[in-house]
């Protein structure tokens, strides 16, 4: 899972850097040479759509999806594990819903031969197809995590559930920041 998440992060990051370069070239060309590549806007939209789906996945794997833990943090480990499982379950539902809705979007776009009203006149089915695949990957990871969490929960391994799927975003993040700061200095 860590590996998939790292690969997703690289695709996401490389997409952003590529987009940034393209847009920069476009802005400079527009300002100084009076020509526009056209399509930077459109590309930006697609990079975000696909990138967001990948980023959902990364955030899931590093447990960064925002949860408000005022009460949670004060509970014993067993109820915490149950809440972790419920949280994961709701995220899985959300991912499943997005895949289902994304599939319907794609199906309609194919049926209507919809194409973007832009210079590239991109058939919408292409970006939406890639987008849907990324969403599906996000769903698979949530569903896989849910299976593991269910198994651990049924066996009463509260600590494992908590350690793998619990909300400790701030603590994790802080530890990572401190480690990185050491590396930099």
């Amino acid at each position: 899972m860590k590996l998939i998440s790292n690969i997703a992060a690289w695709i996401f990051g490389a997409g952003l850097v590529g987009l940034a370069l393209f847009v920069t070239a476009d802005v400079i060309a527009r300002k100084f040479f009076g020509l526009s590549f056209e399509g930077a806007d459109e590309l930006g939209g697609y990079v975000l759509a696909v990138g967001a789906a990948l980023a959902f996945l990364v955030a899931l794997v590093v447990r960064a999806h925002m949860r408000i833990d005022v009460i949670y943090a004060r509970l014993p480990v067993a109820p915490r594990a149950v809440l972790d499982w419920v949280s994961l379950f709701t995220l899985t539902c959300m991912a499943g819903l997005m895949v289902w809705l994304g599939w319907k979007m794609l199906r309609d776009s194919m049926a209507y031969h919809s194409s973007a009203p832009t210079p590239w006149a991109t058939p919408l089915a292409w970006p939406q197809g890639v987008w849907l695949s990324a969403l599906a990957l996000f769903f698979l990871i949530t569903a896989g995590s849910l299976i593991i969490a269910t198994r651990d929960l049924v066996r009463g391994r509260w600590r494992e559930v908590n350690a793998r799927f619990g909300s400790s975003a701030e603590k994790d993040e802080l530890d990572a920041e401190l480690a990185d700061l050491k590396r930099r200095r």
Binding site: W10, V58, A59, H65
Partner: peptide
């Protein structure tokens, strides 16, 4: 260095964008 930046950006963006979607 790039990997660090990418993972952290994906993490924060993923969290924010999912909330915005919701």
């Amino acid at each position: 260095f790039l990997g660090q930046c990418f993972v952290n950006t994906a993490r924060t963006s993923g969290m924010i964008l999912l909330i915005i979607t919701g």
